[in-house]
Design a protein around this nucleic acid. Structure first.
Length: 456
RNA sequence: GUGGUUGUAGCUCAGUUGGUUAGAGCGCCUGAUUGUGGUUCAGGAGGUCGUCGGUUCGAGACCGAUCUUCCACCCCA
């Protein structure tokens, strides 16, 4: 003992106020998920390693927390394996479980495993922590919550439309105005890659393109060249860097670039459909924006790609993301199941609401009245009153020790308890209570019924 | 995983070119006030200077390692 206790980096403790604020966000998201018809499921904190490994690319594999096997796991290694010092060989032998990295892949596993019990299209939501062995920085933690809603088993683009409405509904309910829902389509990106002769380098191409607003046109082109994308292709790409205007006109310009790509044009049609629907349905406070550089996201997105940016002026990475994946469950053996889903980053939304001061004032619903303890006899009388108040749904408590009054008052003060009730010798005789308003300092001596009325 | 940054009292931070007993503000505790908190006044407690090792007659300060914080890259919520 004696050493200073600590928690692993990238993790946090939450105090009562923080928990209340987090619950406020959880409850808001959950309520909207439910009115949109999603049902909750939960999956384990950890999965079999093979369920997760290889699903997020090499980078993802690196960031997955592996759980060491129990028992004498080292003895099962051959001398040859042990002396190889090669993680890819040794890790699977000594670790067969891993903490989940996101909610989507475990969801796909769930769907495949329970396919006979599920009615399709299956709409589920899931609010659970996930873990990434990442290096922490602003808005990046090693343990954080994701709030996901997905539909699987429908190819309808109305799902995309509804998810945009869902984003809008949640952020509106949180009073977070001015968020931008960015949308793009994998087919468009794929089409562009085709046109510039880089079909086989789609990922490199999109990763570079995604950095446009961060590192600028020149460096994006440099990165593309260094990844082996032909110079001639880059010249064809030029119009892409010069897209202008609103959703509709950017789409028109893109059509010209993609005129020779069937897949690209198909992506354009999807974007148009979604945009037209949203335009006619309207959004409460969010903005839908086409962003051809939006390419983040996991390798499995096949159609729409979403990302939500915090309002201008707030320096925060994306606070939500999602997209369509035509064959997510294919890797687990269930073919032809198209899914689309979105995710809310709770911890980042928290930071944004905090920065913009958007949490409601009355979020912590603490004790309403503290009974001062004057000794055993008085305390018993107080507990009777406390019980009655509690039956009326009033949050009431008795100070457990007959400590000095100053100490008890200070305690009430520190905890922001708005009322203090005093029952001493005098009150005992007359069966009454002295109720003090801690804010104004006013106090009055009243009976139990009046006490209830005052505190209700 | 790469590069940088940070760590001194419960909190926010001073601490000179390396030199006696490491400071401040706020907070905390006690009393002024034995049935009244938040104001005021008086007094008090509290630090192995992140940790381990090194240089030096001497280290909070210099060097190394490690942990932690924050930031950038990578990637992402």
């Amino acid at each position: 003992m004696g050493q200073k206790p600590s928690i692993p980096k990238g993790t946090r403790d939450f105090n009562a106020e923080e928990v209340a604020k987090r619950n406020y966000i959880f409850d808001t998201i959950k309520a909207k998920f439910e009115v949109f018809g999603f049902q909750p499921i939960e999956t384990p904190s950890f999965e079999n390693s093979e369920t997760l490994m290889g699903k997020y690319g090499d980078e993802g594999d690196r960031l997955i927390f592996k759980i060491l096997n129990s028992g004498e796991y080292l003895r099962k290694l051959s001398d040859e394996e042990f002396s190889s010092r090669y993680e890819k060989i040794i890790t699977p032998k000594i670790s067969e479980k891993a903490l989940k990295y996101d909610l989507t892949v475990p969801f796909a596993r769930y769907v495949v495993q329970h396919q006979n019990e599920i009615e399709f299209p299956f709409k589920r939501y899931q609010i659970q922590p996930v873990w990434r062995a990442d290096r922490p920085q602003k808005g990046r933690f090693r343990e954080f919550y994701q709030c996901d809603a997905d539909v699987i088993g429908s190819q309808s683009l109305f799902q995309e439309v509804e998810f945009i409405q869902l984003y809008d509904a949640v952020f509106n309910a949180l009073h977070l105005k001015g968020v931008t829902i960015k949308i793009n389509n994998r087919k468009v990106l794929s089409g562009v890659a085709e046109v510039i002769g880089a079909q086989d380098k789609l990922i490199d191409f999109t990763v570079a393109l995604d950095k446009l607003d961060k590192i600028g046109e020149v460096r994006v082109k440099e990165e593309m060249l260094s990844k082996g994308i032909p110079k001639a292709g880059l010249d064809k790409l030029q119009p892409l860097f010069e897209l202008e205007g609103d959703f509709g006109s950017q789409i028109e310009q893109l059509k010209l670039i993609l005129s020779e790509s069937k897949e690209g044009l198909n992506g354009i049609e999807e974007l148009e459909f979604v945009n037209n629907a949203i335009t006619s349905l309207g959004l409460k406070s969010a903005k839908l924006q086409f962003d051809v550089t939006l390419a983040r996201g996991l390798n499995y997105y096949t159609g729409a790609i979403f990302e939500v940016a915090a309002p201008k002026g707030v320096d925060m990475g994306s606070i939500g993301g999602g997209g369509r994946y035509d064959d997510l469950t294919g890797i687990f053996g269930l073919k032809n199941m198209s899914g689309v889903g979105i995710s809310f980053g709770l911890d980042r939304i928290y930071l944004v609401l905090e920065e913009l001061n958007l949490f409601p004032e009355t979020i912590t619903d603490a004790t309403k009245v503290l009974f001062i303890n004057f000794g055993e006899t008085e305390a018993m009388a107080c507990l009777k009153a406390v019980s009655k108040l509690r039956e009326e749904g009033i949050k009431a408590e008795l100070y457990p020790d007959d400590a000095k009054m100053k100490k008890q008052m200070t305690y009430a003060n520190r905890r922001n308890i708005p009322y203090v009730a005093l029952v001493g010798e005098e009150e005992l005789k007359t069966n009454s209570f002295t109720l003090k308003n801690m804010e104004t300092g006013d106090q009055e001596t009243i009976d139990i019924q009046l006490l209830i009325n005052r505190l209700k």
